[in-house]
């Protein structure tokens, strides 16, 4: 005689993210093209705004409504940005000693503080014997 019953699907958030990534890969409902290092990357503004303080500040206001192509002058290079875009859609951040400086710079630019901290932990760990 509980007040109410709930079935919690514990995989739901990762299943939703997986479907969003599939939509991205197929260009379904992607509403912005990011020009990063001249390379065009399609994405969903809603995912970008949910994952990045920088995109939150750009797209939350009316100014972000009509924007469907966004170049990031003086912004991150593609080899630092692409792993972050994949992270947003997969929760997995690919890092290597060669790419972590570019990923760190991109995460700082995109105001993704938690990723910045993880990059610092990765760098720290790579110095430990």
């Amino acid at each position: 005689d509980a007040l109410g019953y709930v079935r919690e699907f514990t995989r739901h958030s990762s299943d939703v993210l997986g479907n969003l990534n599939e939509l991205r890969l197929r260009g379904i409902l992607t509403d912005v093209t990011l020009l990063v290092g001249g390379q065009p990357l399609r994405a969903h503004k809603a995912v970008l705004i949910a994952c990045s303080g920088f995109f939150y500040s750009i797209f939350r206001g009316r100014a972000g409504v009509g924007v469907d192509v966004l170049s990031l002058p003086g912004g991150p290079e593609a080899r630092g940005f692409a792993p972050l875009l994949d992270f947003m859609y997969t929760s997995r951040l690919r890092l290597s000693p060669a790419t972590v400086p570019a990923v760190l710079a991109a995460a700082t630019y995109l105001q993704m503080e938690h990723v910045v901290q993880a990059c610092h932990r990765f760098i720290q760990a790579s110095y430990e014997p």
Partner: peptide, 22 residues
């Protein structure tokens, strides 16, 4: 090969929290 990738699990918050509407 995915198998060759060392995966470290990060349990903490991954992204910013969008402030709740006051």
């Amino acid at each position: 090969h995915e198998g060759l990738v060392a995966t470290v699990k990060e349990a903490g918050r991954s992204i910013h929290e969008i402030p709740r509407e006051e």
